[in-house]
Amino acid sequence: MRVPSASNHAVPNRKLRRGLTVSAALAGLIAFGAWSADAAAGEVGAADGPVLLAQATSETAAADSDVKVPEASGKVDVEKLMSGEALPDVVIGDKNAPVTIVEYASMTCSHCRDFHSETYPTIKKEFIDTGKAKLILREFPFDPRALAAFMLARCAGDDAKRTAMVDVLFDQQPQWAYSNQASAELLKISRLAGMTEEQFKACLSDKELQKKIVEIQQRGENEFGVNATPTFFVNGDKYAGALSPEQMAAVIKKHM
């Protein structure tokens, strides 16, 4: 599969690739499940997504008071949103924080990476680390590579290790998401998390884990109307798109 050219990087949020069933995911992960030590040259098709935008190097300023609060595109029942997931939510921040941010993301989505590299550090420092808000990232894989990455993050260990693994996967997205040697690149990242090659292969062969991650994606779509990534629910209000630090700060303050 062809890697998109750099001219495609301005494409808006990637629309949901429908039909990501467990069987389709398994078919797409055959190369991962059959991974062996000499598979570094094995082929896994490149992810069908826009080429990563260059990471901003300047530090983003904190939200200004005159920033217009983005308009929510819908609202869901918070109690329903916070219950019934196939896998336990991983909460970043104080579980009792008054503002709850639920993010649906795909690991191969460049807009999701933009949010985590450009907005998340500011929001974490100002709101999450101070106990004003908490963040829950839920799996919404668009393709088998994103599914594989989410599986490896879940296999990394406890909540802190899963969060750290997600951070590294976003940070190194160009190396594995658009590579012809995705298996080898994901194994390198997994080894950084302390996983052996045997654990790596066992994780990607875990059909029950695959099923549960796909169930989270399907519930997000069917019950909460998620059809693009990233999509955020802030105390139930829905916002689609990678919000800037100022925009997300304004949204959080609205709910404080």
Rank of each mutant, 00 (worst) to 15 (best):
residue 4 P to N: 15
residue 5 S to L: 03
residue 6 A to C: 06
residue 8 N to A: 13
residue 11 V to C: 08
residue 11 V to M: 14
residue 28 G to K: 04
residue 32 F to R: 02
residue 34 A to G: 01
residue 36 S to W: 01
residue 40 A to K: 05
residue 42 G to L: 00
residue 43 E to C: 01
residue 43 E to R: 05
residue 44 V to G: 00
residue 47 A to Q: 13
residue 48 D to H: 08
residue 49 G to A: 12
residue 49 G to C: 08
residue 55 Q to D: 09
residue 55 Q to K: 06
residue 55 Q to Y: 00
residue 61 A to K: 13
residue 62 A to D: 15
residue 64 D to Q: 15
residue 64 D to R: 15
residue 64 D to C: 15
residue 65 S to Q: 13
residue 65 S to A: 14
residue 67 V to K: 01
residue 76 V to C: 06
residue 79 E to V: 05
residue 86 A to P: 10
residue 87 L to E: 02
residue 88 P to H: 06
residue 89 D to S: 12
residue 90 V to C: 03
residue 93 G to N: 07
residue 94 D to E: 12
residue 95 K to V: 01
residue 97 A to F: 01
residue 97 A to D: 07
residue 99 V to N: 03
residue 100 T to K: 01
residue 101 I to C: 07
residue 101 I to M: 08
residue 104 Y to T: 04
residue 105 A to G: 10
residue 106 S to F: 11
residue 108 T to K: 09
residue 109 C to M: 13
residue 109 C to P: 12
residue 112 C to H: 00
residue 113 R to H: 09
residue 114 D to H: 13
residue 116 H to S: 05
residue 117 S to H: 09
residue 117 S to Y: 00
residue 123 I to Q: 01
residue 124 K to W: 08
residue 125 K to F: 10
residue 132 K to T: 08
residue 133 A to V: 12
residue 139 E to K: 09
residue 139 E to I: 11
residue 140 F to W: 12
residue 141 P to K: 02
residue 144 P to S: 14
residue 147 L to M: 02
residue 148 A to T: 05
residue 148 A to W: 03
residue 149 A to S: 11
residue 151 M to L: 13
residue 159 D to M: 00
residue 160 A to H: 10
residue 161 K to L: 06
residue 162 R to L: 08
residue 164 A to R: 01
residue 165 M to W: 02
residue 167 D to A: 14
residue 168 V to Y: 08
residue 168 V to R: 07
residue 168 V to F: 09
residue 170 F to C: 13
residue 176 W to L: 03
residue 176 W to K: 00
residue 178 Y to Q: 00
residue 180 N to D: 12
residue 181 Q to K: 09
residue 182 A to E: 13
residue 184 A to M: 06
residue 186 L to H: 02
residue 187 L to T: 04
residue 188 K to S: 03
residue 189 I to R: 00
residue 189 I to C: 01
residue 189 I to K: 06
residue 191 R to A: 07
residue 195 M to L: 07
residue 196 T to L: 12
residue 198 E to G: 02
residue 200 F to G: 04
residue 202 A to G: 04
residue 202 A to M: 00
residue 204 L to C: 07
residue 204 L to N: 07
residue 207 K to W: 15
residue 208 E to D: 11
residue 208 E to P: 03
residue 210 Q to Y: 04
residue 215 E to A: 03
residue 217 Q to I: 04
residue 219 R to V: 07
residue 225 G to C: 03
residue 232 F to Y: 02
residue 235 N to E: 14
residue 240 A to K: 04
residue 242 A to E: 15
residue 242 A to C: 10
residue 245 P to R: 00
residue 245 P to K: 02
residue 247 Q to L: 11
residue 247 Q to I: 10
residue 251 V to Q: 02
residue 254 K to T: 09
